[in-house]
C-alpha cells in the first residue's frame, strides 16, 4: 500500500501483518479464492494480487476515478473499498471488456473518436461509461457528463470522450436492433 508517510514505498504493498482472511469473488467471469490482508483495498487486490494493472491508482481518495471498476453492476471507486467488502461480488475491470481478443464497441469508439491520449484515465472512463450504457442505453449529453463527472482527464479533453460514449451508445443500440 502506498503509505503517504513513507514515500519510498509508494509502489510496494505493505502488508498489515494481520491474520489473512479468505476472500471469494468473481473477477471478469473468473472465480477467485485467496487469502488476503484484511486492510487491503480492492484496488490493491486487483493490481497486486491479481496483477490486473489496467485499473489505475490516481488519488486514492475517490476524487479522480482512475480506479473505477464495476461491482455488482455499479461503477465504484476501488480505492475506497476494502477487498474483503467485495466478498461474493461480481467485479468487471477494463481487462474484462474485450471478448476473444476483440475490443468492445465502447473501446473501439474511444479509439475512433480520439478519446484518449496518455490513457491513464481511460480504464476508469471506460468502466464509468459501460455502467452508464448498461443502465441507460440512450443517454443524453448531460447524462454522460454526470456519469463521468467523477473521472478526471488531464490530457484528452472531455469532448472527444463524451463523443466516444455517445457514438458507442448509438452503435450498441443499432447492434441490438439488428441482432
Amino acid at each position: 500500500m502506498c503509505d503517504h508517510e513513507v514515500k519510498t514505498n509508494c509502489f510496494e504493498y505493505i502488508d498489515s501483518q494481520m491474520p489473512p482472511v479468505p476472500l471469494e469473488l468473481n473477477v471478469n467471469g473468473e472465480s477467485i479464492y485467496e487469502l488476503i490482508d484484511p486492510a487491503m483495498t480492492l484496488l490493491d487486490f486487483l493490481r497486486v494480487s491479481l496483477k490486473l494493472f489496467g485499473t489505475k491508482e490516481g488519488c486514492r481518495e475517490g476524487e479522480c476515478g482512475a480506479c473505477t471498476v464495476i461491482m455488482n453492476g455499479r461503477a465504484v471507486p476501488s480505492c475506497l473499498i476494502l477487498a474483503i467488502e467485495a466478498q461474493g461480488a461480481d467485479i468487471i475491470t477494463v481487462e474484462g471488456l474485450s471478448k476473444n481478443g476483440e475490443l468492445s464497441i465502447l473501446q473501439q469508439e474511444f479509439i475512433k473518436e480520439d478519446g484518449l491520449q496518455c490513457g491513464f484515465c481511460t480504464p476508469g472512463m471506460l468502466m464509468s461509461a459501460k455502467a452508464l450504457l448498461d443502465r441507460n442505453p440512450n443517454p443524453t449529453v448531460d447524462e454522460v457528463k454526470e456519469a463521468i463527472a467523477g473521472n478526471l482527464c488531464r490530457c484528452t479533453g472531455y469532448k472527444s470522450i463524451i463523443n466516444a460514449i455517445l457514438s458507442a451508445a448509438k452503435r450498441e443500440r443499432e447492434a441490438l436492433s439488428n441482432g
Binding site: 500500500m1 503509505d3 503517504h4 508517510e5 484484511p38 483495498t41 486514492r60 481518495e61 475517490g62 471507486p77 480505492c79 475506497l80 473499498i81 476494502l82 467488502e85
Partner: peptide
C-alpha cells in the same frame, strides 16, 4: 464503523484516523 467507506477509507489510508477493528454494518 464501516458503511460506504467513502470517508473512512480516506482517513484511514491517510493515517488521519486509526483503528484496531472494522465493523462492517452492511
Amino acid at each position: 464503523i464501516l458503511a460506504g467507506g467513502t470517508d473512512l477509507l480516506i482517513s484511514l489510508q491517510k493515517n488521519k484516523e486509526r483503528c484496531k477493528h472494522i465493523l462492517d454494518i452492511k
